[in-house]
Simulated scan of single mutants.
Amino acid sequence: MDTNDPLDFEVEDDLLKCPPINNKRKKIIGLDDLVKDHYIKQDKLLEKRNKQKKKAKTKA
């Protein structure tokens, strides 16, 4: 018997071996969702800039 050989109890049975449990789920984001979010953020930025311009005009 070679010293590097696995012992009898170290041999794993493929049927008894359980697959790893992956609790994390990857969220799939579609291109439509990304475009929609982009346009929403741009609309908010435009509204913010317009408000700042109006305030600047009223102060001046």
Results as ranks from 00 to 15, higher is better:
A60K: 14
K44F: 11
T58K: 00
C18F: 06
K27W: 08
L46Y: 09
K53I: 12
D5T: 01
I28H: 07
Q42H: 04
N50Q: 10
V35Q: 09
L16A: 07
R25N: 05
D32S: 13
A56I: 01
G30C: 01
N50R: 02
K41S: 06
L34C: 12
Q52E: 10
D8N: 01
P6M: 12
P20V: 04
D2H: 14
E47N: 07
K53S: 03
K24G: 13
R25P: 06
G30L: 00
K59F: 02
K44N: 10
N50P: 00
H38Y: 09
K48D: 14
K54C: 01
Y39M: 03
R25I: 14
E12K: 15
Q42S: 03
D33P: 00
D37F: 06
P6W: 05
E10F: 01
K44C: 07
E12P: 14
K54Q: 04
K24W: 08
A60M: 06
E47F: 05
P6G: 05
K54V: 08
P20M: 07
L31E: 14
K51P: 07
D2P: 14
K26L: 05
T3K: 01
Q52W: 08
K24I: 09
I21M: 11
E12T: 12
I29Y: 13
L34I: 01
N22S: 10
K51V: 04
N4E: 10
I28K: 14
I28S: 07
G30E: 01
I40S: 06
I28L: 12
